[in-house]
Amino acid sequence: MSSYQPLLTKAPAQLIQANGQPAFGLFDGSVPDFNLQTFVYQNLMDKKANTLARYFHYKQFQFICVTGSDWVLAVAIADIRYANSGFAYLYRFDTNQTVSKGLLLPGALGCKMSDSPSAGEAKQQFAAYKVTIKTSPSDWQLNINTNELKANLTIEKSSQMPLALCAPTGYNGFTYTEKSNALKVSGSIELQGHPLDLTLALAGYDFSAGFMRRQTSWRWASISAMVDGKAFGLNMAAGVNETGLCENALWFDGHIQHLSPASFVFDRKDNTKPWQVSSLCGEVQLEFTPLYCRQEKVNIGLLASNFRQYVGLYTGFVVLQNGSTLQLNKVKGLAEDHYAKW
Score class of each variant (00 low, 15 high):
residue 107 G to R: 10
residue 164 A to P: 09
residue 298 V to F: 03
residue 12 P to K: 09
residue 32 P to T: 06
residue 34 F to H: 11
residue 213 R to T: 07
residue 261 P to D: 11
residue 171 Y to M: 15
residue 188 S to F: 11
residue 154 T to D: 11
residue 293 C to G: 00
residue 162 P to R: 10
residue 240 V to F: 03
residue 169 T to Q: 15
residue 210 G to C: 04
residue 47 K to G: 13
residue 180 S to H: 14
residue 25 G to S: 04
residue 48 K to Y: 11
residue 32 P to G: 09
residue 20 G to W: 02
residue 156 E to P: 07
residue 282 G to K: 03
residue 307 F to P: 00
residue 219 R to N: 13
residue 29 G to C: 04
residue 270 D to E: 02
residue 197 D to A: 13
residue 125 Q to I: 15
residue 76 A to L: 12
residue 5 Q to R: 13
residue 267 D to N: 05
residue 6 P to S: 01
residue 42 Q to L: 15
residue 281 C to W: 14
residue 118 S to P: 05
residue 246 C to Q: 10
residue 197 D to S: 11
residue 188 S to H: 14
residue 70 D to K: 02
residue 227 V to K: 09
residue 172 N to Q: 14
residue 211 F to Q: 04
residue 331 V to Q: 07
residue 94 D to P: 01
residue 229 G to W: 07
residue 265 V to F: 07
residue 267 D to W: 01
residue 106 P to C: 00
residue 294 R to M: 01
residue 229 G to P: 04
residue 240 V to P: 06
residue 321 Q to D: 15
residue 257 Q to G: 10
residue 291 L to M: 05
residue 321 Q to F: 10
residue 258 H to L: 13
residue 62 Q to I: 12
residue 247 E to P: 01
residue 182 A to W: 06
residue 42 Q to I: 12
residue 153 L to T: 08
residue 157 K to E: 07
residue 329 N to F: 11
residue 311 V to T: 06
residue 223 I to W: 07
residue 69 S to G: 11
residue 35 N to D: 09
residue 91 Y to D: 01
residue 324 S to Y: 12
residue 27 F to I: 03
residue 130 K to D: 15
residue 185 V to K: 04
residue 257 Q to N: 08
residue 195 P to E: 02
residue 135 T to V: 08
residue 194 H to P: 05
residue 77 I to N: 03
residue 225 A to I: 08
residue 182 A to P: 03
residue 94 D to T: 01
residue 325 T to Y: 06
residue 288 F to T: 00
residue 74 A to H: 02
residue 31 V to K: 09
